[in-house]
Design a protein around this nucleic acid. Sequence first.
RNA 1: GGGCCUAUAGCUCAGUCGGUUAGAGCGCACGCCUGAUAAGCGUGAGGCCGGUGGUUCAAGUCCACCUAGGCCCA
Length: 916
Amino acid sequence: MLDPKELKKTLNLPKTEFPMKASLPRREPEILKKWTEMKLYQRIRKEREGRPKFILHDGPPYANGRIHLGHALNKILKDFVVKSYSMMGYDAPYVPGWDCHGLPIEIKVENRIGRLEDKAKFRRECKKYAEKYVGLQRDEFIRLGVLGDWENPYLTMDPEYEAEIIRHIKGFFQRGEVYRARKPVYWCPHCKTALAEAEIEYHDHKSPSIYVKFPLLEPEKLSPSLEGKRVFVVIWTTTPWTLPANLAIALHPDYDYGVFRHGDEYYILARLLAPVVEEELGASFELVHKFEGKELEGFRARHPFLDRESVIVLADYVTLEQGTGCVHIAPGHGEEDYQTGLKYGLEVLSPVDDEGRFTGEVEFLKGKTVWEANPIVLEVLRERGMLLAQGEISHSYPHCWRCKGPVIFRATPQWFISMDRAGLRKRALEEIKKVRWIPSWGEERISNMIENRPDWCISRQRSWGVPIPVFYCKNCGEPLTKPEVMDRVAEVFEGEGSDAWFSHPPQYFIPQGVKCEKCGGREFVKENDIVDVWFESGTSHAILKHRPDHRWPADVYLEGNDQYRGWFHSSLLVALANEGESPYRQVITHGWVLDEHGRAMSKSMGNVIEPGEIIKDYGAEILRLWVAFLDYTEDVKLGENILQRLTEAYRKMRNTWRFMLGNLRDFVPEKDSVEEDQFLPSDRFILTKFRRLVERVKKLYENYQYYKIAHLLYDFFTVDLSSFYLDITKDRLYCSAPASPGRRAAQTAIFEMARDSMRLLAPILSFTSEEAWEHLPEFPEKKPSVHLEFFPPALPSLLSQEEERDWEVLMKYRDLANKALDQARKEGFIGNSLEASLVFYAPAEERKVLEKYSSHFLEIFIVSSWKIEEGEERVEVEKAPGKKCERCWVYHPEVGKDPEYPNLCPRCVAVVKELI
RNA sequence: GGGCCUAUAGCUCAGUCGGUUAGAGCGCACGCCUGAUAAGCGUGAGGCCGGUGGUUCAAGUCCACCUAGGCCCA
């Protein structure tokens, strides 16, 4: 007789080196090292060479700052796409890119070293800064487990890339889509420079607050009763100096306006605001006529002090918060004014120079600064009787971040790409329809944007960027935009980079003999402006043609949904104009990362979570699992609670793999695998379920539906494997003879499910599947990394339709049995379910099914004995007869009958005899 | 203010064409096991389907409005 300790040695208990504790923050870097050393990315490329390509083209993040969760979400999703398509059998390269030029870097550098007059030197500093962050971000992306050609990224500041930008600009010029026009920008008269929105600070500022009368022409057209009366449109402004540039007065189309009599004058203003104006004047008005704003559209008023007319227009942005509901419009001095001006075809007047002084266009103000002009304008208004009221107001006003002085809006010449001259807008709208947008509402979103966007202003008054390759005639100022000149610029940039623009004289770029088309002049000066960085990143599709590992167009662009306005938009316009087609076939967008309560993360809210913290505390794998479990097409939340749930889910999957590996410890696939006919019903049932799952998951990968994959696989691990199949097969695995057909059958099933679930999860759980893969038994075709594998091939179902229905019945009785066993346990009748014998009562049909499988009930129900009776469906619990076998713990009537092994059941006696 | 989007259990997700008592897993509670053990198994309790109104014999599902939140504009 063997004592329990010796008996335990005769069992095949699971054993594996694959640790239960993941220690991800420590282990992940080791796995990354393995991938680097084996050159995994290059190796995958090599193995997939010649296969159909699948191109995900990376949208370049901005090379500034450390990565945040939005970056992590984006890059991990891209990694899912690339890895899954690679495992489907495509040659799916991933070439990361960075957006390197632009204002934010300029601002950072300027903060550090001040503003340099020497542009070349300043640009060198900007370049260093960009390089530093490209390096930092690259390391952070690699740490996430993202596989790609990190040694050969594309940078928008690469000379070849800069040359492409020039060539694309040339294309727009050649097709006549580029024009030069004036547009108001923030301007600091002290620093004599244009400012971007990001360089503006808002401070309180005292301004005049005045009400001005504009005599309305032909008032009788509004109401016959006004014939011959002195009718005025009353506007309110805090910038009297912009009145010389007034060209229109805007009313809201739907608001209620009135004509109010005051003495022998009649004033037009919004009805709701009349009391405010009355108070300002200390007078009371009499309402003599009512109308809606839109009735006045197209009327004309006389300018209060210039010999010019001002047209009445309509604008939605007119509010009734202050003023008169009639808004003074100077298209050269305000963004909204400018937009309205465009709509109504108004001129862009801006009679103010670099220093904020009036030019000769306004004679009586010539040479005065705008601040000096204010009181003079007031005086003129007063003289003419056009000043209805005046006061002072303290309000929030834009100031220069550099000199802290107040800034103005001033129109300056800019370069524009026309949306309509060559039909760009129309073609873009057509092209959008050919693209697959995921989610589908993206199509409507980008269409609305393209439909309503103004012409694209591509010039910027900055220095860290690619120059607009234009020269001006020194003699007459005419721009030189010849394609051959731009070709030469591109050629120079390709060799020297765009720094060349700042270190060479114009003649370096201009072929001999080129003359000004207007005056024949031969001397030129270089353009100072650079191109909008959105144009730069919009040119990135060019790498698809230049890199041998790529192909034009891309299969997928995948970015946050802010990029409908950004990269998707600019890429479409730039590529479409130059290639005639959209650069992408599919566009996938993901949402924003919010905190646990669904609020945007911001420094001021103090709810920002850094990817680095999560990697340090949980591991990058948990972050990957987070991405996988969420419906990324919507905004996604992250917080402690969610991380806890994910960590638990991770542990469950890891442990399930660990248990499977433990049970495969002595399994040699090519030797020990059994034929189909050796499978027990439960093996066939679980394998069929699994094989179906494999096919579903592959389909879901094709359609980028990762959260469905994660849920399906996780549910399979917990419900089907852990709590069902792996629980019920323990008896077979542990207690049978090691090489018995039943045990080998279970191992064959487990091996298939372990191997193929690792393959299926490799794109998501890239680290853990790799680690588990190393512990999986060797087999002939096994690759040294799971990421070199293919997704599992389709395998046949092992159940007939009848057997599938049988399992529905069996599972129903399993539920009933569990409930009955739980009840018995609560009553203290049994502990371990093996102490029980079950009595099944079933209607005739179901009884037949139960009897068909009854020889497997020890396994399926984990009980020692059972009886099947006909009756209303229910399960009852009795004590199992016989004594407990000390080896397998099953109660059996014959325990004690074998004189040699009186503490064992017949099955175990046989096994032990075989082993000893 | 405009365009687009979201709202189902504590968390992550199902819920078909409008049709029985709105489902799953996790978490939680209670129990079992100690041969997956910083594991494993079982049972159970959790829902005003964001709100209001409408269409309909019937609404989580369709429509309108509102609220809260998100992205992009203004």
